[in-house]
């Protein structure tokens, strides 16, 4: 009995030692020399592996950071400025601060304003639908509503609204990684500056058709009427092929264009609710 126990213990110990030695020598033999800083940088990064930086994942990005000379062109959209600052500090470099951005959906043709002209009956995918035809409404530019952007989002920040059939961005969660921008075959989604306190103004339409055609397909389309361009005091609005575009670097958030737009295609976000001037005047009178 005792002999069995001793034999077992001894044989297992020897076996363990031999195997440990083999493991040790193989590990030595196949050792990969790697900059230890890569591991450190990786721990600083958020670890979402979203690919928003342009690298295949956080590890690759960390490698990129360590191996490059300066921090130019390297930015982690998820971690934002804080994380980039930490990375730069760790590597003993400086980094320029980047303006926070957010994904913006530039189509507001919901089911009412943009009626369907046919019924799509294929695989639920914008990419498949876009490769088949122009879309299930008369607008060739608008949202197809199959939710490729929602699928592409790693952060649960963009969701299809079943009522309007359009995606909606949760700006708290959006990290501006750009996955949805790439996923949208109609190129509707754009990354725009978040703006002070999240205030921003944009044209929520990318229809390049002539005014009449666009209007016929969608009640809230940009018809290229140039009214907004005329009213803009800061030269922020350009109109190319019947479509207005607001340059977020020039826009001073005066909101004049929003009122001017005859089709309500220009949107304002995160502004206080407007009180009509008449009401203001009446309140003052009292």
């Amino acid at each position: 009995m005792t002999a069995t126990i001793i034999f077992t213990i001894a044989s297992l110990t020897i076996l363990g030692l031999v195997l440990a030695l083999i493991l040790y020598f193989t590990a030595q033999k196949f050792k990969v020399v790697e900059d230890p800083r890569i591991d450190e940088v990786e721990t600083i990064l958020p670890g979402a592996n979203c690919g928003g930086c342009g690298y295949t994942g956080c590890r690759a990005f960390a490698e990129g950071c360590v191996n490059s000379e300066s921090m130019d062109g390297l930015f982690c959209p998820v971690g934002g400025n804080d994380v980039m600052k930490k990375v730069a500090e760790y590597l003993g470099r400086t980094v320029a601060e980047k303006v926070p951005q957010v994904a913006v959906v530039r189509c507001n043709g919901n089911c009412d304003s943009r009626p369907k002209s046919n019924n799509y009956d294929g695989y639920t995918s914008c990419a498949v639908m876009a490769s088949l035809y122009a879309g299930d409404t008369d607008c060739r530019y608008g949202c197809l509503g199959q939710g490729d952007c929602e699928l592409s989002c790693e952060f649960d920040a963009i969701k299809m609204n079943p009522r309007t059939g359009l995606p909606e961005v949760d700006e708290e969660k959006c990290t501006a990684c750009g996955a949805c921008v790439k996923a949208c075959p109609k190129m509707i989604i754009e990354l725009r500056n978040k703006g002070p306190k999240g205030k921003r103004i944009f044209v929520s339409c990318i229809n390049k058709d002539k005014g009449g055609v666009a209007r016929k397909a969608c009640a809230v389309a940009c018809i290229g009427c140039t009214k907004c361009q005329k009213v803009c005091a800061y030269d922020a609005i350009t109109i190319t092929s019947n479509l207005a575009y607001i340059d977020y670097n020039k826009c001073k958030l005066c909101r004049k264009c929003v009122v001017e737009c005859p089709t309500n295609a220009i949107w304002e976000v995160n502004f206080p609710v407007r009180v009509p001037k008449k009401v203001v005047a009446e309140v003052e009178k009292q």
């Binding site: 046919n118 009956d121 294929g122």
Partner: peptide, 9 residues
């Protein structure tokens, strides 16, 4: 106008 069904082949 009639709403047709459209799908890939």
């Amino acid at each position: 106008m009639k709403k047709l069904i459209v799908s890939p082949a």
